[in-house]
Design a protein around this nucleic acid. Structure first.
Lengths: 334, 334
DNA sequence: CTGTTAGCGCATTCAT
DNA sequence: ATGAATGCGCTAACAG
């Protein structure tokens, strides 16, 4: 079972390679009906498939877009990828996949590699959107998703962090929570976290950092004990205030609830709680959790839409920021 | 900023393209130190990158493996993909990504497309492993992951469903649960579900289907009411038996707990429970959940290992089934 | 050490 | 309606 080439088919059909090529590209008006039929038959019998590498080289175009993902393991990210793929499929692009596993170095390598492949465009879900490595990217053929950099140099599509947090906090306020805390991982200059905090501030108008609770990444550390201590203090000093917590993401939320349990506090009696991100299990907790659902699939499709347009008409414009609205899921956790 | 070719570099360095090519491929012994230095400088200044399409064509090899994923949105699957990518990276293969979104038709299209691309190998996470479409695949250059077909025609790497379930059930039995139910989605001939059930049977030795609880996919259906009714009956008729439930996966588990809550039963007082799959939230539930952790990352890497070996030495052997062991996470849910 | 040349598999004028 | 010839960017003998 040797690899068949266009020449083999041409020989079998007693025509030239040009005719076969025309057939393959659907230029049926350039041949007689008889040869057309012969070709269809031979090709199907022989199970011949044109070599797309050679085809790409000849046409000097590469209908593939490269994707650099910070961490494919993140469920949010895989939904984005799902959207990207769907749209690539629609536009007839293949997707070259790449995963940085949260390493900036790896991401750098991946992007360079993608560029060498001569892909038509690149979509990057950045490890650290403020890393200087993105400076080398051209806005003509790349789009960033999910996290946005502080200074926008590449078209970016992300969720509307500020607004969605602000509005959810407003809901808590409407239920008389007048003492609300923002629960987060250490900031580390990650834009996502900052923006969510901004939304929090816009709603609460707090002017100090007193309403910020930091959760360490690891559960068994000294910092974790401190974190629990913080919570204890907050809860004992609250007086008659209805006290609320807004969590920056689901993992932080889990840590909070866990710590609160250990302190023998439970929601919504002792405190109200809500979180960014939505997962299946939130509606099964007792009581179910109010949260913010991001439309991550759309982030993927829209990113590809933008990319495709840029590739088509190559007049470069100013980098744009496209914010995707979220959805409020109100349940009984506050 | 035009695309540079190897010829451009050759001209700038006043050498032939062959020399540049040699340089690019590390054959430094074939040129003088001076030209070598000139080349390094020119290439770095000019930011030239060889066109890998052309290179592939010339070498007549295609260092890419195609991946067909049933549903990238599944967190388990994205870990597998993560493993696949990591190993592809090590072996210097690029990965062409493809997502079927749970549609057999789409999967079929994707695989065909991958084959047309002339990829060196294919890894498929099948929508339905018993679909006839896999008959057209050659075991010489493809590996299946996650789900296994009833008759093995392609090398497959999957988690050890039977053993891991059996052993976890044994743990429940050791705690005097002598009335255990297997909770699952409708079978639909999905091998994964069947195997987990087999493990259940091996441990419990039940000879009838009386210990099978089926959960409908959708929550608001007539079937769902029936499911709840089933649970109610089981719980009221249990007498003094310690009653346990083993859930086939996390979603089923959530449904079960939810329904039990509505019926005002809670674990571990009224019933014991454990589940396949592990998620973050399981250790935060009250009390935390005992479960089975799959090593999905390894499934990915090992699949690529096998594929790489097959590609290297192309002597075809009998299709093999590689079972990846799991890990028991014992907590307080039973 | 370096250059010439002939492909890799296909697309695309330009003839006929 | 069909074919011959040329080139896409690079590699790999083979010469020199």
């Amino acid at each position: 079972m040797e690899k068949l080439t266009i020449r083999d088919i041409a020989n079998m059909a007693h025509v030239s390679t040009a005719t076969v090529s025309n057939y393959l590209n659907g230029n049926y008006d350039r041949m007689s009906l008889t040869t057309r039929r012969r070709l269809t038959e031979i090709i199907s019998n022989t199970n011949y498939h044109p070599n797309s590498i050679a085809r790409n080289l000849a046409k000097n175009e590469n209908k593939t877009i490269g994707v650099s993902i910070a961490d494919i393991t993140n469920p949010f990210t895989s939904q984005v990828l799902s959207g990207i793929y769907e749209q690539c499929d629609n536009y007839n692009y293949r997707v070259l996949f790449t995963n940085a596993n949260n390493s900036e170095q790896k991401e750098m390598d991946n992007i360079t590699r993608l560029q060498n492949e001569g892909v038509a465009g690149i979509i990057v879900d950045p490890v650290n959107p403020d890393s200087p490595i993105y400076q080398s990217l051209s806005n003509d053929n790349t789009v960033m998703v999910d996290r946005q950099s502080t200074e926008l140099i590449i078209d970016t599509v992300a969720t509307d962090n500020v607004n969605s947090v602000q509005k959810l906090i407003n809901q808590m306020q409407a239920k008389d929570y007048n003492n609300i805390y923002f629960v987060t991982w250490p900031f580390q200059n990650i834009s996502t976290r900052n923006q969510r905090y901004q939304g929090f501030i816009k709603a609460t108008k707090y002017s100090t950092l007193n309403h910020l609770v930091t959760v360490p990444h690891h559960g068994k550390s000294v910092e974790y004990q401190q974190f629990k201590q913080n919570l204890a203090t907050i809860m004992t000093q609250k007086g008659d205030d209805k006290i609320g917590f807004f969590c920056m993401n689901a993992r932080v939320f889990l840590r909070l609830v866990q710590a609160m349990q250990q302190l023998h506090f439970s929601y919504p009696q002792d405190y109200g709680v809500a979180t960014y991100e939505e997962f299946d299990w939130m509606k099964v907790m007792t009581p179910p959790i109010s949260c913010i659902r991001q439309d991550s699939f759309s982030i993927g499709t829209i990113a590809m839409d933008i990319l495709q347009q840029k590739i088509a008409k190559k007049n470069s414009t100013q980098p744009q920021l496209k914010l995707i609205p979220t959805q409020q899921i109100l349940r009984q956790s506050f």
